[in-house]
Every structure is written in structure tokens, then in C-alpha cells.
């Protein structure tokens, strides 16, 4: 996997998640960060830090990105969400526009 095709998402606690750029683009917010011309340092380094999103939630978000790509291509599997994660995940989804 070439470096240009991946992006690093960093959680509040500093955990790093390296995922496909294509998957990360499911989030409108990340898409804007990565594609907007000029300005964002994220565009250059392919790193995005989320000081508001905990590791557990960010991991779940990454899983969702991949699930969403599959779902869009017609593969209907269940995406299980643990009840205790629902609130945080919902807020992260709202922030990430996904």
C-alpha cells in the first residue's frame, strides 16, 4: 500500500489508525480536509488528529468506514453497535458528517 493512498487518523489518546484514503473519504469532514486546496496541513501529511474522539470510538468509526464502502457496493451485512457506544458514536458521526 502506497503512502499516498492511506491516511492516519489520531485519537484523543494519541492512538494512530492508518486506513485507506478511500475509506476515510466516507466522512465528508475528512474529505474536505484532505481535498481542500491549500491551507490544511492534513492535506500534505495525510494525518488528521481528533482531540475530541476517544480511541474506542475512532476504532469503531474506522470499522464503519469500511462497512459503509461494502454497503454501498451492495453487500448488506449488519453493523453492530454496542449500546454503550451509541451516544459517543452518534456525536462523532455528526462531527465527521458520516
Amino acid at each position: 500500500m502506497k503512502k499516498e493512498d492511506t491516511v492516519m487518523l489520531i485519537s484523543a489518546e494519541g492512538f494512530e489508525f492508518v486506513i485507506d484514503k478511500k475509506a476515510a473519504m466516507v466522512s465528508q469532514t475528512i474529505r474536505n480536509m484532505l481535498t481542500s486546496p491549500g491551507g490544511f496541513s492534513e492535506t500534505e501529511h495525510g494525518k488528521v488528529t481528533f482531540p475530541e474522539i476517544s480511541t474506542t470510538i475512532l476504532e469503531k468509526i474506522c470499522q464503519y468506514f469500511y462497512w459503509s464502502l461494502q454497503y454501498a457496493s451492495g453487500k448488506e451485512t449488519e453493523f453492530h453497535i454496542e449500546p454503550e457506544l451509541t451516544l459517543e458514536l452518534m456525536m462523532a458521526a455528526n462531527y465527521l458528517h458520516t
Binding site: Y64, F79, H80, E82, P83, T86, L87, M90, A93, T98
Partner: peptide, 19 residues
């Protein structure tokens, strides 16, 4: 995703107690 979260959060009284 927000909708799925709301679905999961309101699935049962047990789920509500979790959050």
C-alpha cells in the same frame, strides 16, 4: 450512522440502561 446509533440506543430497555 447517526440513524443506526439511534436504532441501537433505543433497541430495548436494556440498551437504554447502558447509556
Amino acid at each position: 450512522l447517526e440513524r443506526m446509533c439511534i436504532d441501537a440506543a433505543t433497541e430495548s430497555a436494556v440498551a437504554v440502561d447502558k447509556w
